[in-house]
């Protein structure tokens, strides 16, 4: 038995995934070539523009960077902003 929604008005908390798994909205998927990624190549925190510009906050600024595909909507902003074009948007139906 699920807990009942006792809220008087509609609301949700600031938790990851409150909007549901939004990754299935995606038609284009970001694919990273780490050999072209500046931070990964320099082995230190460098541009991370993908992390900065991602409107969904699904890019993890690590070495290597990671994109959470459960919530990435495939907007392509990261690919657009990446200076060395290390991120390519690939159609979801093509592996």
């Amino acid at each position: 038995m699920k807990k009942k929604d006792t809220n008087v008005a509609a609301m949700c908390g600031p938790q990851i995934g409150e909007g549901g798994k939004t990754g299935d909205w995606r038609s284009l998927r970001p694919v990273i070539s780490h050999e072209r990624c500046i931070p990964f190549q320099k082995k230190k925190s460098a541009c991370f523009l993908c992390w900065l510009y991602c409107p969904e906050g699904v890019v993890k600024a690590g070495l290597p960077i990671e994109i959470n595909l459960e919530y990435c909507k495939g907007c392509g902003i990261c690919a657009e902003e990446c200076p060395p074009k290390a991120i390519l948007m690939v159609r979801e139906d093509k592996s």
Binding site: K2, K3, K4, D5, N7, A9, A10, M11, C12, G13, P14, Q15, I16, G17, E18, G19, G20
Partner: peptide, 23 residues
């Protein structure tokens, strides 16, 4: 106690991250 008031609601019910089936 941050909240998002009046988020987009869907035609169906939705389970939140704490397992509550939201209206």
């Amino acid at each position: 106690n941050p909240k998002n008031l009046n988020p987009v609601l869907f035609p169906w019910k939705r389970e939140d991250t704490e397992g509550v089936l939201c209206d």
